[in-house]
Nucleic acid binder design. Structure first.
Lengths: 153, 153
DNA sequence: TATTGTTATACTCTATAACTATA
DNA sequence: TATAGTTATAGAGTATAACAATA
């Protein structure tokens, strides 16, 4: 199965490059707003769930230590993109929620990225993109963790 | 073109997740050797070109500031994975080359990853993988930079 | 003068361990 | 005692600006 071996080689290289480019272009777009990639990844679960999340929840959703999340949220608060509030029913818990500015930022970044992808995909027809999506969904890779959707409720 | 819009949404999300997973699994594998992702990316151009590279070349190939590369190479030298040598013809230039250990490490990491991908792709046939490769090659995204293959000669 | 690389400085991300407040 | 979050500490990656050596 030499052919399969070559395919694996090529796929490994392409995924590495794609990962690199994706992260680079995301960082580039975010730098316009003074936001870093880890900060952006901390905002995503808030948007996806459509509600405030505890620090613990955010740390699990992004697969980071709680202490790491403390620093990231500190900076997002300083930029006015999220707010911290003590939970009433359990005073130990700190709930983090998007501010209006945070919501606006997410919307703008998303719109920018949509435009970029739209252009990048001009040459493909819907059927081809459909197939690409099915491939990407099926690619399990090593981890089975779904970003912004950690196992914690 | 509502369908295209949904596709773009989905593709943006999937690529973000794939990027995240790819980086996470790479970091995981490298941690076994005490090597970080940026350090690994600094090793790749050395392997790809099959010769020693100047600091400038490495900085350009990985799209990092020269000062950043200094620190990364410091740590790779400390681990015995690369060596620094002054260039004879131009004493300003520092050439960085893989040590035997560095070469071995790259070979091992590559073999591990091949095995992982092989397993991840078991359910696809060669034709399907062929098509996936063509898609990934065609995806231009924002940057057109090719990893480990900077514009500098 | 221009280029190569390093140092100095500052900031972010990262984890682990110790600590505080609450349960 | 156990949990949530922060603080303390240490190290890596990142860029910019200043610097030394060489061209």
């Amino acid at each position: 199965m030499a052919r399969r071996g070559e395919h694996i080689e090529a796929l490994e290289r392409l995924l590495r490059q794609l990962t690199w480019l994706e992260r680079k272009s995301l960082a580039q777009e975010l730098s316009y707003y003074g936001v870093t990639v880890p900060q952006f990844y901390a905002l995503l679960p808030l948007e996806k769930r459509g509600r405030a999340c505890s620090m613990n929840e955010l740390a699990q959703a992004t697969q980071r230590a709680r202490a790491t999340m403390t620093g990231i949220i500190d900076r997002l608060v300083r930029m006015g993109l999220v707010e911290r509030r003590r939970k009433g029913s359990d005073r130990r818990v700190v709930m983090v929620g998007l501010t209006r500015r945070g919501e606006q930022l997410l919307e703008e970044v998303r719109a920018r990225r949509r435009r970029g992808f739209y252009k990048a995909l001009e040459k493909f027809d819907d059927g081809e993109i459909d197939q690409l999506l099915r491939f990407l969904e099926a690619l399990p890779l090593a981890l089975s963790w779904e970003e912004g959707d950690g196992k914690s409720a």
